[in-house]
Write a protein that binds this DNA or RNA. Structure first.
Length: 494
RNA sequence: GUCCCCUUCGUCUAGAGGCCUAGGACACCUGGUUUUCAUCCAGGCAACAGGGGUUCGAAACCCCUAGGGGACGCCA
């Protein structure tokens, strides 16, 4: 019997997401349970959005959670490179095969034309998709266009009739009509592969036996099995996990919930508690045990015990669980060490020392001044803002705009935070002092504190976002309608 | 809109046709312990989406309806 090999394939385009950790956990447990290997592959084929920072954060947060990989970046292995941006030659070679066999074709359509087509189809209430415009160009026509160096992509051919039937480990037989499947782009005009193509090629070459991933992929399985067929490869076994949900049951998203693993780390959750909690999303130990370690989960793992209803990622139970670990696991000494490590390693202490020194006369003055750096939320009421010059509605707007600006920062530094907020206060034509007043309250819970700009820089986007949102709520919140108007106004600010 | 997936307490879930008067955990409520609070302990509230079948027997199997979610990109 061949060795089980599973993988997690994150795309380094943002914060390390708890959903990534969730899927990584199940992949790892499945592999370990079968004495197999768990592989990490970086899917950085989106040149525009992939960043080294994001890749670094994702890798280190998986490590923080204890989800180390057997093969992948930093570890090596016999199937590398494990970064798709370093595998271009492989994709070029494989796309040539498909072009030769006629299973893929050049497409010279412009983005504008495709938009147009899609719009027309939508208006006619048809299934949106590529209309096959370039599917039947003659070899001569293609050569002429290539010689004229026209931009092109490469698309796959798809059967027009019949159904694609495949097996899912958890859901059994699934059938999707080929007519539902678009002539997917495999190679983009920048010469890089799309997810669908790179994913299939890499999973095959890396000898992945089981693809365990989120339910969101289930509709693209036909594209993938078709590619396996075109290459005459055996497809892996598919297993689609339920998606983590917001309390309103929609797919877990940072707009509605903290989704960054960094947020949970900064809030002072223990990695083993977070892992334990993720392990109870859609899964239970055969003996019903609720508190368990990663290695206990790996030993007892049984993928057929996954339940398919999308679990709500609701932090109440996580809080209880984390408290239980804090109270019951380890000695008082361990607790002390972990607490100190958390405060120090979070990078929050060192940068505030210079600010702090100017304001204290004795060490005993320190604790009240810095408590908000080490808090999750700060206690505020509408009255906390009563000294602000801005009316509550304007303060709301200022806070929301500030949040959006901060979220858009590509580099997180004191200087960036400062210039962003200064520019924003000018754009809004509000005195800096008045503009910053509600921010002081939102971030520190007090009208006066250490520099709010430094504070934001130090506590980071995740915690800042949580506090700004909380403050907006306290000030009366923003309705959906208002949000739309604000978005418009914000866009005009430039 | 089209297609696909899903549906047990508010939330996470147990449940593989009779062991189900549907079990556990979180949250909530009540009581006990505790100088307060928290912890801890004991108890309580609370669910099989609806309708049809199949079967001696359905939370479980099948069908329909409803509800929820996802996908429909030169993003992954």
């Amino acid at each position: 019997m061949t060795q089980v090999r599973t993988r997690i394939a994150p795309s380094p385009t943002g914060d390390p997401h708890v959903g990534t950790a969730y899927i990584a956990l199940f992949n790892r447990c499945f592999a370990r349970q079968h004495g197999g290997k768990f592989i990490l592959r970086i899917e950085d084929t989106d040149q525009m959005r992939s960043t080294a920072q994001s890749e670094h954060d994702i890798l280190s947060s998986l490590q923080w959670l204890g989800l180390e990989w057997d093969e992948g970046p930093g570890v090596g292995g016999d199937f590398g490179p494990y970064r798709q941006s370093e595998r271009s030659a492989i994709y070029a070679e494989h796309i040539a095969t498909l072009l030769e066999s006629g299973n893929a074709f050049h497409c010279f359509c412009s983005a504008e034309r495709l938009d147009e087509v899609r719009k027309t189809q939508m208006a006619a209430k048809q299934q949106p998709g590529y209309d096959g415009h370039c599917a039947h160009l003659s070899k001569a026509e293609v050569d002429t266009k290539l010689a004229a160096s026209e931009d092109y992509v490469i698309r796959m051919r798809v059967p027009e009739t019949g159904n694609c039937e495949f097996h899912d480990m958890l859901r059994g037989e699934v059938s999707i009509a080929w007519s539902q499947i678009d002539m997917q782009v495999l190679m983009k005009s920048d010469g890089l592969p799309t997810y669908h193509f790179a994913n299939v090629v890499d999973d095959h070459l890396m000898e992945i036996t089981h693809v365990v991933r989120g339910e969101e992929w289930i509709n693209s399985v036909p594209k993938h099995v078709l590619l396996y067929k075109y290459f005459d490869w055996t497809p892996p076994i598919f297993c689609h996990m339920p998606l983590l949900r917001n309390p309103d049951k929609s797919k877990l998203s940072k707009r509605k919930n903290p989704t960054s693993i960094n947020y949970y780390r900064d809030m002072g959750y223990l990695p083993e508690a977070l892992i334990n909690y993720l392990g109870m999303m859609g899964w239970t130990m055969p003996n019903g045990q609720e508190v368990f370690t990663l290695s206990e989960m790996e030993d007892a793992f049984d993928i057929s015990r996954v339940s398919l209803g999308g679990p709500v990622f609701d932090t109440e139970k996580l809080d209880w669980l984390n408290g239980k670990y804090l109270r019951e696991a380890g000695s008082d000494k361990d607790f002390q060490e972990r607490l100190l490590a958390w405060a120090q390693d979070s990078g929050r202490l060192a940068p505030i020392i210079p600010l702090l020194r100017q304001r204290v006369e004795k060490f005993s003055d320190v604790a009240p001044l810095i408590s908000y750096f080490f808090s999750g939320s700060v206690a505020i009421t509408p009255e906390s803002f009563s000294h602000c010059k801005l009316a509550p509605a304007d303060a709301c707007k200022a806070l929301q705009f500030a949040l959006w600006k901060l979220e858009a920062l590509s580099v997180w530094s004191r200087e960036e935070v400062e210039s962003t907020l200064m520019t924003l206060s000018q754009a809004l034509d509000i005195k800096v002092r008045d503009f910053l007043a509600p921010l002081f309250v939102a971030i520190s819970g007090q009208p006066v504190s250490l520099s709010v700009i430094d504070s934001i820089a130090v506590i980071g986007l995740d915690l800042s976002r949580a506090r700004l949102r909380a403050a907006i709520e306290v000030l009366g919140g923003i309705s959906k309608k208002q949000a739309k108007n604000l978005e418009k106004e914000f866009a005009q600010l430039g």
